[in-house]
Design a protein around this nucleic acid. Structure first.
Length: 556
RNA sequence: GCCCCUAUAGCUCAGCCAGGAUAGAGCAGUGGUUUCCUAAACCAUGUGUCGCAGGUUCGAAUCCUGCUAGGGGUACCA
């Protein structure tokens, strides 16, 4: 498989600078990080470096002369047609047309693996995402979480990491207990009892339905047992049903996990006690006012935090430390990436401190904090809360807009950006979603290949390609590995939808301008070459769609 | 109060990490395109105090400081 031109050029530039230094054309200095990237304007070539501008100061030379010193030492290669110096000191690189067309064969040979890059070297990475409390249906915010997490996991896999996808099930602690208490009340109400829901209970209608359902299925038997026992039993039933519903929603979104990790299991397996003892032993713990505190202020946090509350219940920080101990120490992940909503950002310094406390490099724990999704309905801002029951469920949006559009929309923004989703507007405009533009390009490739069934184009000669629209398409196809690498390095899956649009945006004009399956017999050689190009384009479109978790339809 | 994120075209957003060449895309708007592979397409066209004010630099949307506005956090909830 081909080395990426970008990296090739980086080495060529580096070697050119070193050679120029040896020859005395450039003074000697240590090389900074050299940046080669894609210029904004087409006439500046495929790649460009501003290295000369960067170095002009240290070299005490005019930038243009530095650029010339570099450009003149870039050797002739098969993939570069042109190396140019441009004002005020850029070196621009243009890919060779013949080399470009040959990449079509390379992509066909690579097949589904096209786009993979050898970055991770098999490092073990866990991506934990979703992880909404199993106390209610998933809302749109969880949708953003899972779409980012899953997209990231896909990209990291393509970049050569060994990725494990995990959902942390908060099946212990205050919130699920409150959930079970509420379910008990709704269940009793369904059977005609006057049972108020707890003060801070979950008010959503879904629990009324769940109470009804349990009453229908289980009858009155829970009313006959001691209340505490009944609540425990309902806890198990409710948890199972909520998890099933969450899993259903995620399946609809096309998301499956390698593992659902139970918080409760940390207590059952003894990991929790072990970690707490360890923290005590290492003197990271203090008792104050009847509670047990994690002295995180000594480990870089701005304050201490409660581990065990004065009522004897562990707080969620405590189990989270045990959970991460399990991830790093027991399961041996090299890196753990957690996707968190902005409402958890205060938890970041605590967990970093916790990593120091358990002897893990804090940098190997990466927290992707995404800004919360603000929802609007008919111009009204909707506040989301499972407890008040005011939620817009992920399922509702999935059913209205469809999983592909939801994925594309939620993935297409940087995690940092605060997005506002107007449901009414989204429903209205979902037919304008650019996802269909990309999918349509894929459907068109499929359509052409169907139409040409019976034509064996395996002997197609790609050197016949050369139409500007063909070359533009190949250029976009070649960006996939760069995009994967960039997204994996910066943990930013939002690059994918932008790239997908660029790729489709090169395919559609090609389709319009270049007739692939022509009825004129003399066109056969070109037909075959173009069929190769279409088959390769289909591979690339399918791959980028798959990385986003969006389907690639054969027809639309 | 303190901490984190954000402010770029009418709307929704890229670009900021690693400063560079006339700041980009989609949607919306306007005009046009169909003798063979799907018009969910193509072609053409307008749009900017890059929140404000300073600073650093040969060069700032990008880095630094202050300010303004919005979102989030600052619990013995998660």
């Amino acid at each position: 498989m081909l080395e990426q031109p970008l990296h090739e050029i980086e080495s060529l530039v580096r070697e050119a600078i070193l050679a120029a230094q040896d020859a005395g054309d450039l003074p000697s200095f240590d090389l900074p990080t050299l940046v080669v990237d894609r210029p904004q304007r087409e006439e500046h070539g495929d790649y460009a470096t501003s290295a000369a501008l960067q170095l002009a100061g240290t070299a005490r030379m005019v930038p243009l002369r530095v650029a010339q010193a570099i450009a003149s030492r870039i050797p002739k290669t098969d993939f570069l047609a042109q190396v140019e110096v441009a004002e005020p000191g850029f070196v621009n690189f243009t890919l060779d047309d013949g080399w470009l067309t040959r990449q079509v064969d390379e992509i066909l040979a690579a097949g589904e693996s096209y786009g993979n890059v050898p970055l991770g070297q098999g490092q073990k990475v866990q991506v934990e995402y979703g992880s909404a409390n199993p106390t209610g249906p998933l809302h749109v915010g969880s949708g953003r979480n899972t779409v980012i997490g899953d997209g990231l996991a896909n990209v990291l896999e393509a970049a050569g990491y060994e990725v494990q996808r995990e959902y942390y099930v908060n099946d212990a602690g205050t919130q699920v207990r409150l959930f079970a208490e509420t379910l008990y009340a709704r269940y009793a109400q369904a059977l005609g009892r006057d049972e108020p829901i707890p003060e801070d209970g979950y008010r959503g209608a879904y629990l009324v339905e769940l109470g009804d359902e349990v009453a229908r299925q289980e009858g009155e038997r829970f009313l006959e047992m001691p209340r505490r026992e009944a609540v425990n039993a309902l806890y198990e039933i409710g948890l199972e049903k909520m998890l099933a519903s969450i899993e259903d929603d995620l399946t609809m979104l096309g998301i499956t996990y390698d593992r659902w990790f139970s918080e409760r299991s940390l207590y059952d397996s003894g990991v929790f006690d072990h970690v707490l003892a360890m923290l005590r032993e290492k003197d990271h713990v203090a008792e104050r006012a009847g509670a047990v505190w994690f002295v995180s202020s000594e480990l870089g946090d701005d304050k201490d935090n409660v581990l065990i509350r004065s009522d004897g219940e562990p707080g969620y920080l405590a189990s989270d430390i045990a959970y991460h101990y399990d991830k790093f120490i027991r399961r041996g992940f090299d890196r753990v990436i957690n996707v968190w909503g902005a409402d958890h950002q205060g938890h970041v310094p605590r967990m970093k401190a916790a990593m120091r406390a358990i002897g893990v490099d804090p940098d190997s724990l990466v927290l992707i904090v995404y800004q919360l999704v603000a929802l609007r309905r008919g111009g009204e801002l909707v506040r989301l809360s499972k407890r008040t029951g005011d939620i817009i469920t992920l399922r509702e949006v999935l059913e209205e807009i469809g999983p592909d559009a939801v994925r594309f929309f939620l993935l297409g923004r940087a995690a940092d950006s605060q997005m506002e989703l107007d449901l009414d507007l989204a429903k209205e405009q979902s037919s304008e979603n650019p996802v269909y533009y990309v999918q349509y390009a894929h459907a068109r490739t499929a359509s052409i290949l169907r139409y040409a069934q019976g034509t064996d184009f395996s002997d197609g000669d790609v050197s016949l390609l050369g139409h500007p629209a063909e070359l533009a398409l190949i250029r976009q196809m070649l960006r996939l590995p760069e995009v994967v690498e960039k997204a994996a390095t910066s943990l930013s899956p939002h690059y994918l939808p932008y790239y997908a649009q660029d790729l489709a945006g090169a395919f559609h004009p090609f389709y319009k301008q270049c007739r692939v399956v022509s009825s004129v017999p003399e066109d056969m050689p070109l037909n075959k070459a173009r069929l190769k190009l279409v088959a390769a384009a289909k591979i690339v479109l399918a791959r980028v769609l798959a990385l986003m978790g969006v389907s690639g339809p054969e027809s639309m």
